[in-house]
Design a binder for these strands. Sequence first.
DNA 1: TTGATACATTGACAACTATCTATATATGTG
DNA 2: CACATATATAGATAGTTGTCAATGTATCAA
Lengths: 107, 107
Amino acid sequence: MGFREDVRKIKALTDENRLAIMLALQHGEKCGCVLLEELNITQPTLSHHMRILCDSDLVVGRKDGKWMYYSISPEGVAAFREMIGTYARCDCEGGNETGNCCCSVGA
Amino acid sequence: MGFREDVRKIKALTDENRLAIMLALQHGEKCGCVLLEELNITQPTLSHHMRILCDSDLVVGRKDGKWMYYSISPEGVAAFREMIGTYARCDCEGGNETGNCCCSVGA
DNA sequence: TTGATACATTGACAACTATCTATATATGTG
DNA sequence: CACATATATAGATAGTTGTCAATGTATCAA
């Protein structure tokens, strides 16, 4: 199966700085230079992380003049969570089909 | 914030073999030797992966004689999805509080 | 055009990870 | 006890990843 692509996408969230970036973007788009002020990393490192987040489709970038505005992708986030749900799930009494399974928690 | 612990847990799902294991356990517990037959890896490598999955609380192990039976942890899975949801989320029109946000998809 | 700003790319390096072989431990069987 | 089976641990190694300094590219203003 195509586990490789899923692994690649999940890896987008396996870095402390990238988690911080996801939180930083939660209330709307920000440009790179603003993110840079919030994270104790250099500009090339931020560029590296933004590329990974965009490649995972969790984040989208919009270029405006010399600025890059980044924002959470609602579609990407939804697809991500759905994908995670295919692996982080179980068959408990409620059943997954009915939506009553404990795995529906935090959905 | 404690991103480190979250990163460690998310890393549990960033390996193709571990994703395959999560799927293999989805319909009930299996002992290590059965998993070993389904995955083209050596026994020490399986042991390594099971340790990581158990450390992440996505899987629990039960020792019975010389066998180790592994199964999905419903609580661990629920906590994992909830944790993922704190990072893979957005503020779109529906709003996160009401549960109508697009980020509720695949929950 | 010159200079400043925002961002991307390159190359190097340390840290981490998945994998294997070899070996150890534990359990059950004759 | 000796032996087989199931699993864990140790050590080695190749590949990956996050980071930085240095440099390149693009945009805008004076």
